[in-house]
Nucleic acid binder design. Structure first.
Lengths: 126, 126
DNA sequence: GTATATGCAAAGCATTTGCATTAAA
DNA sequence: TTTAATGCAAATGCTTTGCATATAC
C-alpha cells in the first residue's frame, strides 16, 4: 500500500460518478502532485483485476471506472456528452439468455446500457 | 459510388459475422488489392453515419461492424476471443427504462451484451 | 471540368510497457 | 535488505487526418 494507491482509492470512493483515467489522474494530483498517469493506470488495472472496480466502455472515448461493484446495476449513457448514470430498473430477472440462444457459450454476465440524451444535451440539440 | 465502396459493401453483405476494420480490409483486398485501410475506415464511418451499419464495441480490442440493422437484436460476446454472435431472446419488451429511472434523459436505445465463454475458449480454460 | 474519393504517410488518442530509481515491508 | 511500486519516456494499437493524385459524375 503506497500513498499513490491510497489517493486513487480516495478519488474513486469520494465520487459516485464514472470518471476516466485522465480525470482520476487530475483529481489525484490535487492531493499528490507527483503521481504519474502510468501509476494511475496500473492501479486502476489492479483494482479491476481484484474485482474492486468496474470498467465501463461508454461506446466512444476513454474507458470509465465505476466504483459501484456492490449491487448489480445498469448504465444510462448520454450520446452527447458521454455522461454515465447508474440505474436499477426492474425486469432484471428477465435478462437471462435462454439455453436455446446460448450457442454453447457459458454465459457469465449481462451488460445493459440505455442510451439517450441528458437534459443538458437535449437543449443543445434544439 | 466507387469500386472501393462497392467492395466494402460486398464484404459486409457476404458475412453474417462481426468483422473488424482490419479483417474487412483484408477481405476487401482479395477482390481489390490496392484498397487502403484508410478508405475502408472512411467507408465504414460513412455507412455508420448513414445508419446502414452498426458499430459494436466488444469491450476490448478493435471495433466490430454489424451489418444487421434490420431487426433489433442483442449480442453474445466471448470473453476469451471476442467472438460476437447475434441473439434474439424473448423478454426484450421488458427492457424499457421506467420513467422514474430516467433522470431527465430522453432514452433512444438499449444495448444488451451477454458475456461468456464460447465452446472453444471453455476448452482452453481447462 | 469539377467535385469527390483515394492512398499514403504522418499524426492522434488512450493505454501499456521497459527500465532505472525510489520507497515499502 | 529484499521486493515491489513509481515515474518517465518510448512503444503500442486502433483510428483519423492532411494532402497530393486519381477517379467518378
Amino acid at each position: 500500500m503506497t500513498p499513490q494507491r491510497r489517493v486513487v482509492a480516495e478519488v474513486l470512493r469520494g465520487e459516485h460518478v464514472h470518471l476516466s483515467a485522465e480525470t482520476i489522474h487530475a483529481r489525484a494530483r490535487r492531493r499528490l502532485p507527483e503521481i504519474s498517469l502510468a501509476t494511475v493506470y496500473n492501479t486502476l488495472n489492479e483494482l479491476v483485476a481484484m474485482g474492486e472496480l468496474l470498467e465501463v466502455s461508454p461506446g466512444y472515448g476513454p474507458k470509465r471506472y465505476d466504483p459501484n461493484v456492490v449491487d448489480h446495476h445498469q448504465h444510462l449513457v448520454c450520446l452527447g456528452c458521454n455522461d454515465i448514470l447508474d440505474v436499477h430498473p426492474a425486469g432484471e430477472a428477465d435478462l437471462v439468455l435462454p439455453p436455446e440462444d446460448r450457442h454453447g457459450y457459458e454465459v457469465v454476465d449481462v451488460d445493459v446500457v440505455f442510451r439517450g440524451h441528458c437534459p443538458t444535451c437535449q437543449h443543445r440539440h434544439r
